[in-house]
Amino acid sequence: MEQALKPRLSGVSTAPAKPRGHTGAMLAADVAPRRWIGALGIAAFLGAWQLAALLIADPSTLASPLAVVAGFVRMLHEPFAGSTLETHLLASLRRFGAGFGLSVLIGVPLGLLMGWFKMLDALVKPLFDLLRFIAPIAWVPFAVLWFGTGFGGPVLIIFAGAFPACVIGAYGGARLVDGRLLEAARMLGARDLRILLEVIVPSAMPAIVSALRVAAGNAWQSLVGAELIVATSGLAYLMVRGQMNRTIVIVLIGMLAIGLVGLLIEWLFRHFERDVQRRLGQADQP
């Protein structure tokens, strides 16, 4: 539908594409120094961490980076708190996938419908604006009362963290669709459902994908808060058990694993976002 509409919009002018060769060369020349600077920053942090561990000289207060790496490798085959590190990681990923997936399945369609149907927007938006300012951690008492320490409690908290970003991104994308495309679709006899599926959804896709990247980060952070309180497995639960046993190495291993997985999630969604932008003919972001 959208492809069929564009040739009929004779009055619509598009901006000329920017030359990308020179810009791409400049970006490539700029990325290499920044990578070296980032590597130096990480090396400086590790050096300061190692020095602090040597000065404190108390393994129950601060473990060295080498001790954390050795413990990380050891936990791959030696269980702690009933499971190995991989098992705790898989438990966290299952909760993350369920909560984040549920927020996408409900939040994105709701945001698109709110952006297209004014009556639904007027009905839902006041309640949504109230609920989205409730921090995910505030849902912990409800999660405990409703689900105990089972699978559903953390999923609810993760859903609460990711759902607002999904709705807001899809809503904003639907509201920013070019009105001339909508008018042309109506002139061609398209009804609301077809306009929604063939004009609004493709036009809103960049905003939706950007919102999913934000929602995934919120979901992963919410999972950490959930597992600290209402879980009996997972990376954050691992940290709790390490703190209870006064084993700082376990706490740092959990923090390291959480950071690495969060970095991987961000990297995957950033590349997915760039791929969608490239397919839609938008300029790549640095």
Rank of each mutant, 00 (worst) to 15 (best):
M1D: 01
Q3S: 13
L5T: 12
L9R: 15
S10W: 13
G11C: 13
V12A: 10
V12G: 05
R20V: 13
G24K: 10
A28E: 05
G38N: 13
A39L: 11
A39Y: 01
L40G: 04
F45M: 12
L51P: 02
L51T: 12
A53C: 08
L55H: 05
P65I: 10
L66W: 14
A67W: 00
A67V: 09
A67S: 06
V68E: 01
V69K: 11
A70C: 03
G71M: 02
L76T: 13
T84Q: 10
L85F: 09
E86P: 10
L90F: 11
A91V: 12
F96D: 12
F96Q: 08
F100Q: 08
L102W: 01
V104A: 14
W116P: 12
W116Y: 10
K118F: 03
K118G: 12
K118D: 06
D121P: 09
D129Q: 14
D129N: 09
R132V: 02
F133N: 13
I134R: 05
P141N: 02
P141A: 02
A143W: 00
L145M: 15
L145N: 09
T149K: 14
G152C: 06
F159C: 12
C166F: 01
G172F: 02
A174V: 08
R175W: 14
R191W: 10
L193C: 06
R194N: 07
L197V: 14
L197Y: 08
E198K: 15
V199K: 05
V201E: 01
A211T: 09
A219C: 06
I229Q: 06
G234D: 05
M239N: 10
V240G: 11
G242I: 14
M255T: 10
L256H: 00
G262E: 03
E266S: 13
F269T: 14
Q277W: 02
R279E: 04
G281H: 03
A283W: 01
